[in-house]
Amino acid sequence: MLRIGKLPIALFAGFIIIFPWVAGKVPAIGNYTDIMVFVGIYCLITIGLGLLMGYAGQISVGQAAFYGIGAYVSAILTTRYGLNPWFCMFIAVLVTGTIAFLVGTPSLKLKGHYLAMATLAFGIIVFIIFNEEIQWTGGPDGMADIPGLSIFGFELDSIEKYFYLVWGFVFVILIFTINVIQSDAGRALRAIHTSEAAANSMGVNVSKFKVLVFVYSAILASLAGSLYAHYLNFINPSTFDLFFSIKLLIMIALGGMYNIWGAIIGAGIITFLSYEWLHYFEEFEVIVYGAILLVVTIFLPNGLVGLPGMLKELFVRQKSNE
């Protein structure tokens, strides 16, 4: 469960590197590179959320708000003050991290699901601010003309170029997070999940670790928000509503929250469902998500990544019954 080999990472990297090339050759999936940019952006959020939920055992229903804060800070600073987008992205991370620290510190000191309650309220408040503070955020109409990104004068002006930028971020974060999971900090987090009392008496500063992971997950969401804003060049509040927070939770639950690959698989499947495969359902899309969540929580508590293990166990049991 813990050992995350280098081979899957390498294989996945290979898949990502050739993806735009393959998608370019096959007309039926020609637009998949564009969708994969969004998958990458959501992966940044779900990796952080997976660490928070699966490893530290805390639920946040406010990740959309951190995602939105990242996007809006980037958008406001670049369009109104003409600052360098990379610098704005950094400022957004600082702002989001500080806010997460302020929200997380009091609610994580308490036992139980207070963080879920606090982040739920926080997400709603932030969503209202995006809508109402029209002089800053443009209100429900949103903000347009957000500049694109460039690296040392090299404009990331095509979908393919942006694809590699986003997935570059994903791989850096993925490897960083895997390293953390496989270190003392990761052990401390898993210990907290199993028994806070025991973790505490082994000298683990439980509330500090919980806040730390919460801030980390918020920072990743902020980063994703900035990348989103610079990719679409336009943002409006509806992207960052409560439903998106819940969608993120569905991604984690579907993929499997106890495994970092679950975050990536879940983000991939849900994104493709909502951008491509669920169009026929139109307004009834929500029902499909509800059904997915229901089926997963009842039959697949470890998500899709837990499926092979479950089948294996079933097979072994069947064998021993014979």
């Binding site: 469960m1 813990l2 960083f176 997070t177 390293n179 953390v180 496989q182 270190s183 003392d184 900090a185 990761g186 052990r187 401390a188 898993r190 210990a191 199993t194 028994s195 009392a197 025991a198 973790a199 082994m202 000298g203 683990v204 730390l212 980390y216």
Partner: peptide, 29 residues
């Protein structure tokens, strides 16, 4: 109150947490 899903070794390694301090950043990188 063991950490049941962790290995025997990992359980004891967690006990070393205070004696061999490591940071989130240092382990991440």
């Amino acid at each position: 109150e063991l950490f049941g899903n962790m290995t025997v070794l990992e359980n004891v390694m967690l006990g070393c947490h205070t004696r061999v301090p490591t940071s989130f950043m240092a382990s991440g990188f």
